[in-house]
Each structure stands twice: as structure tokens, then as C-alpha cells.
Design a protein around this nucleic acid. Structure first.
Length: 278
DNA sequence: AACCTGCGCAACCGCCAGGGG
DNA sequence: ACCCCTGGCGGTTGCGCAGGT
């Protein structure tokens, strides 16, 4: 049986996001969080499918994203984790705060894989490429076993590496500022409201909870597009006119980001079509 | 200066798993 | 127990840019 497409393709815009679309999406998500991604574009006034919105947010617009190249430490960690987990990019990303699975996947495919090959290491198995030629393809079991041994070694290395990172600060480099959890969650109370910080970081993390996002706004370091838009632009934008149907902007244009947006919705609920709330 | 090539990255696609009705 | 819907994941593609010729 055929699977329903994530969205009806007609009237759905594809391709690169414009600044205006970004603005709409960010504005909407910051005030409402995401209820269910399917309705986000409708409520935000976007001609995109929910999937596209989710991707855009998680990979690019999330305030807690680090930008720029992976540092050496991060790269090492990725290699170690890949040795253990394989191509489970989201799991790998979960170990690298501020990095997305997509970013890591790209970095792996463009940089690390080639680097490993140059070093004579098979990027898939993490074993030396010039192994003694096996007469026949090694039995899966044997491969599995050697892989496991390899993994154990690497796990140990990884743990050492983690300790090192904990001491030195993961991924510090000169190019991009590292966003620390406390920078995203300005107060411990805020952080506690949000569950684990790492879950918000994880590539698999969908979105910070609404209360999180509102807390995060004030102390956050925005990714580049946010700088481009400028917080002033966001604050000053005429959101009421952008989202005539959503009531965003509260009729006054512009968000009061100092206030938990959900305070606007008695009972913590946010009721547009349904009571969608994370 | 023009063209070519390779690289980096954002975005899309299809599949899968989990949860709710 | 089954079906449907949604979110999430991994693979792949295509575009824009930078560097080389």
C-alpha cells in the first residue's frame, strides 16, 4: 500500500528558504513551539510542508546550534562514535551539543571519510584498508567479532576522549563560539523546566519545549540567519499581519519575548484548530 | 577574464518506528 | 489486533561558491 506523502505536493513550495520564511517559522515556533509539524506551516502562514519546516528548524534555525567546522575534538568524537554506532547520525549528533545529524553526516561524507581513506582506514569498518587479502569474504561472524573488539578499544578511547573534552571544553575552536548549555538556558530553573539540556541539543530533538524556547530567547546566541534577520527585526516585525489567522503578535505586532508565550493561552493550552501542544 | 572542476551544505525523498484511536 | 498518522532517520541530490587552469 502506498504511503501518503507528508504533504499534498500541490501548492507546496520547495527549495531554499527565504529570510521571510525563516522569520515566519522562527516567530511562530518561538511563540507557540511546535504543536504538530503538519499544522505548523499552515499556522505560520508558510507554503511548506511540515516536514520541511521541521528540517529547517532542527538543522538550521534552532537557536542552540553551533555553526562552523567541527573542531578536531569533535571530529575525533564523531569517528569514535561512528566506529561504535555506524551511520546512526542522530545518535552521534546527540553526543555533540549544538551539532545536527545532517551536519555531522555531511562532514563525515565530505571530510572525515576521505581523511580516513587517506590514512588507510576503511571508513565503514574502521579497519585498516590493506588487510591481508582474505581468500573469501570473511564470515559475517568473524567480521562481527573483530568489529566488536575494535569497538571495545574505541569505546575506551572514547571515554578517555570524553574526559579530556570535559576538562578542556568540547569543540572549542577559534572560528565559532561554543554555546554552552547555560547560555541557552539562562537559569537553572529554566533548564529544569526543559528536561535535559542534551535532549534539546540532540539532533533528534525536535524542538525545545515552548516554555524552554521562551526562556531560551533572551540569552541565546542565534545562528547566522538569526543575526541576518536581527532580533530587532524579529521583535519589530509586524507579526500580527504576518499571521493574521494565528493571532500571533497578540494584535499589537511584535512579540513580548519576556513573557512565556503560553501565558497567553490560559491553562497552558494553545488552541488553534485543535488543542495542539507539545 | 572566462571556463571548469571539486567541494560544502541545505534540502528533499522514502522508509521505519511508535503512539493513539 | 489492526490501521492510520506523525515524527524521526539515513541516503541522496542539486545548487552555489571558491579555487584552479
Amino acid at each position: 500500500m502506498g504511503r501518503q506523502p507528508c504533504c499534498d505536493k500541490v501548492g507546496v513550495k520547495k527549495g531554499p528558504w527565504t529570510a521571510e520564511e525563516d522569520q515566519k517559522l522562527v516567530g511562530f515556533l518561538l511563540t507557540h513551539g511546535h504543536c504538530c509539524w503538519r499544522v505548523v506551516p499552515k499556522l505560520a502562514g508558510l507554503l511548506r510542508c511540515g516536514k520541511s519546516c521541521r528540517l529547517r528548524w532542527t538543522n538550521y534555525l534552532r537557536p542552540d546550534l553551533k555553526r562552523g567546522l567541527l573542531s578536531d575534538d569533535e571530529e575525533r568524537l564523531v569517528i569514535d562514535l561512528h566506529a561504535q554506532l555506524g551511520n546512526r547520525w542522530s545518535k552521534i549528533a546527540a553526543q555533540l551539543p549544538g551539532r545536527t545529524d545532517n551536519e555531522i553526516k555531511n562532514h563525515w561524507n565530505t571530510h572525515i571519510r576521505k581523511k580516513l581513506v587517506r590514512m588507510g582506514i576503511d571508513p565503514v569498518t574502521h579497519l585498516p584498508l590493506q588487510e591481508p587479502p582474505a581468500p573469501a569474504p570473511a564470515p559475517a561472524e568473524q567480521q562481527e567479532q573483530s568489529h566488536r573488539q575494535q569497538e571495545e578499544l574505541q569505546l575506551q578511547e572514547l571515554q578517555n576522549g570524553r574526559e579530556l573534552i570535559m576538562q578542556e571544553g568540547a569543540g572549542e575552536d577559534d572560528i565559532t563560539p561554543m554555546i554552552q548549555p547555560h547560555e541557552i538556558m539562562p537559569t537553572a530553573a529554566a533548564a529544569s523546566n526543559c528536561g535535559s539540556v542534551s535532549s534539546a541539543h540532540a539532533g533528534s530533538a525536535s524542538v525545545v519545549s515552548p516554555s524552554c524556547s521562551s526562556s531560551a530567547v533572551s540569552g541565546v546566541e542565534w545562528p547566522e540567519p538569526m543575526y541576518l534577520l536581527g532580533m530587532d527585526g524579529i521583535m519589530d516585525a509586524d507579526w500580527g499581519s504576518l499571521f493574521p489567522d494565528t493571532g500571533a503578535g497578540g494584535g499589537g505586532g511584535g512579540f513580548d519575548l519576556g513573557v512565556d508565550p503560553f501565558d497567553q493561552y490560559p491553562g497552558g493550552g494553545f488552541d488553534q484548530e485543535d488543542d495542539h501542544r507539545i
